[in-house]
């Protein structure tokens, strides 16, 4: 579904991704771990198409298409969803309004009519119940004054409504209490299906206890330093990243 080959990307003139390769197949869940500043968010932003990042080399193919040719909104409509590490606040814009606009942008792309207001509300309430979210958040400004955990749940709500083909969740599990973590895990597991793929960027084994990954990768200095199955995450938890760095260098 997603094939990244030898990707090099920079921001502000600094090369962050230095020849990264990664394959994610349909139906798979991948976890990406790695020390702070290793380039995990950079990778996520490059896949989503943030204009501040410059792609210097390599290819990114998504469902057979050259992803780098597409505008960010086209990528989104084609089914790529990024759960942001730091979801931005948009004061004054109703959360439900953005959500509905997003759903309709995608439906339009698929040649479907706009979702009926009643149906939309029903669906949103259903998903919120699943995520154990306060329905009031629907009528607040987008992320405006949301707590850290509420922001992350809101990302999962958007994901649940948009039903992406490829979801990349950038530290959606950070800063969550136990209940919220379970709710997020429930949202991710509900999305799991043979024709979808999920990439979880995380620092912790905890989420992976609820959402079992098929593959675990360690990103270090802009490259995948090591890949393995779910046991790799446990090893990391125990031994830290030095172990990977040493293994990579030695």
């Amino acid at each position: 579904m997603l094939e990244i080959k030898n990707l090099k990307a920079s921001i502000g003139g600094t090369e962050i991704l230095r020849g990264l390769s990664l394959n994610v197949g349909a139906g798979e869940i991948h976890a990406i771990m790695g020390p702070n500043g290793s380039g995990k968010s950079t990778l996520a932003q490059v896949i989503a198409g943030h204009a501040d990042y410059e792609v210097l080399a390599g290819t990114v193919t998504y469902m057979g298409k050259n992803l780098l040719d597409l505008e960010p909104e086209e990528r989104a409509r084609e089914g790529i969803f990024l759960g942001f590490q730091y979801p931005v606040e948009i004061p004054g814009v109703n959360n439900a309004y953005l959500l509905k606009a997003a759903v309709n942008a995608k439906r339009k792309h698929q040649g479907l009519p706009e979702i009926d207001a009643f149906e939309f509300l029903k669906l949103a309430k259903e998903k919120m119940a699943l995520l154990d979210m306060d329905p009031k958040l629907l009528n607040r400004g987008v992320n405006e004054g949301f707590s850290g955990g509420e922001k992350k749940r809101n990302e999962i709500l958007q994901m649940a409504m948009l039903e992406p083909k490829l979801a990349i969740l950038d530290e959606t599990d950070s800063g969550l209490d136990i209940d919220a973590l379970r709710a997020v895990a429930k949202g991710v597991n509900a999305l799991r299906s043979p024709d979808r793929a999920i990439v979880l960027v995380t620092h912790y084994q905890r989420l992976l206890g609820y959402v079992e990954p098929d593959r675990v990768h360690v990103l270090s200095q802009g490259k995948i330093a090591r890949s393995g199955d779910k046991t790799l995450a446990l090893q990391l938890e125990e031994k830290g990243y030095d172990w990977v760095r040493e293994a990579a260098n030695g």
Partner: peptide
């Protein structure tokens, strides 16, 4: 902000729709 626009675009809105949405909210 560029990040607000990018956030909206990542959710499938065109840049113009994103601006309109933010302005109308304002």
């Amino acid at each position: 902000s560029a990040n607000q626009l990018f956030y909206c675009r990542q959710r499938g809105l065109s840049e113009e729709d994103a601006v309109n949405m933010i302005v109308n909210g304002f």
